[in-house]
Amino acid sequence: MRIGIDLGGTKIEAIALDRDGAIRARRRVPAPRGDYAATLTALRDLAQAVQSEAGATGPIGVGIPGTISPATGLIKNANSVWLIGHPLDRDLADATGRPVRLANDANCFALSEASDGAGAGHAVVFGAILGTGCGSGIVVDGRALTGPNAIAGEWGHNPLPWPQPDELPGPLCYCGKRGCQETFLSGTGLERDFREQTGRDLNGAAIVAASEAGDAQAEAALQRYEHRLARGLATILNVVDPDVVVLGGGLSNLERLYRNVPKLWGAFVFSDTVSTPLVKNRHGDSSGVRGAAWLWPPE
């Protein structure tokens, strides 16, 4: 039995996963905001609750919106800023009496989809999350890459490649730089682009609905988004050449991406052919929490 916990900005979800990948217990609670001690308590209580429901104990894996600094052992690069500077893995291990592993939530997503999701059976899986932010993870032979700086897969904080003149210098990102892919390829990036181009304030779902109803401005926004996503993924194909690219996050539900983006990325991939499949995730919102459990492979 393995416990997986997905620590999000608005919710915390926990599951108990058996060795065959079946969920034996599941709980979800609102995430405390701005309070590290309350977050730690919520994680401890959730772990104990799913262990009790499943009737078994096991190690704990946690997906977080950040990572552990190899230099200090403390959380860094977390957009849930109250986690930064704390030894969350050690504190949770002390609170629960269980072994704990932490990983970036995008790495957990990629690991879940590589283990028994849309990327199962592929040696190299690139998983991209297109949601409120824009993250990614890389899994090779069943293991998530982290790197010596614990930043492998920080795709969203590279500049948008082959920028058009009207894309420069790019929006200001929360990381302090301009033109990060996250500011273009996240759901909030799509909404910002539509607002700046049209003066209309619609969320992502409304933009899609407007396009399907024949709204030319909404259709143009989605075409700009697809071209940007194609350029962004082309850099991954050029550097990593994964066996499959799996999309997650809210924008992964946009079926047109799987038709249109592969038609566009060939112009930017350094190859005469591109056979890489672009696919939708299999586990949906559960990918993060399942991937956290998969941080402890079955023995």
Score class of each variant (00 low, 15 high):
M1Q: 06
R2F: 05
I3W: 02
I5D: 01
L7G: 02
L7V: 09
G9C: 10
T10P: 05
I15D: 03
A16P: 00
L17N: 09
D18K: 03
G21I: 03
A22H: 13
A22K: 13
I23S: 08
R26Y: 00
V29K: 03
P30C: 10
A31S: 15
D35P: 00
A38M: 09
A38N: 06
A38P: 02
L40W: 01
A42Y: 08
A54I: 07
G58N: 08
G58L: 09
I60G: 00
I60K: 01
I64F: 04
I68G: 00
P70V: 14
L74R: 14
N77L: 11
A78D: 02
N79C: 02
I84V: 15
P87A: 15
L88E: 00
D91M: 02
D94I: 09
P99A: 14
V100L: 05
N104H: 15
N104F: 08
D105F: 06
A106K: 03
A106Q: 05
L111R: 07
L111F: 11
S112Q: 06
S112T: 10
S112W: 03
E113T: 10
A114T: 07
A114F: 06
D116P: 06
G117H: 05
G119M: 09
F126H: 09
G137R: 05
V139R: 05
R143T: 12
R143N: 08
N149P: 00
P159F: 12
P161F: 12
P163V: 14
P165Y: 08
E167P: 05
L168D: 02
L172C: 03
C173V: 08
G176V: 07
F184K: 06
G189R: 08
R192A: 10
R192G: 03
D193C: 12
E196K: 07
Q197H: 14
D201K: 09
A206T: 05
A209N: 09
S211M: 12
E219Y: 11
E219L: 15
Y225D: 01
R228T: 07
A234T: 09
I236Q: 07
N238R: 09
N238Y: 10
V246D: 03
L247V: 12
G249E: 06
G249W: 06
G250S: 08
G250Y: 10
L251D: 01
L254K: 01
E255V: 14
N260S: 14
N260Y: 06
P262L: 12
F268G: 05
F268W: 15
S275W: 04
P277Y: 12
P277T: 13
K280N: 13
N281Q: 13
H283W: 12
V289P: 04
R290S: 02
A292M: 08
A292F: 06
W294V: 02
L295Q: 10
E299T: 14
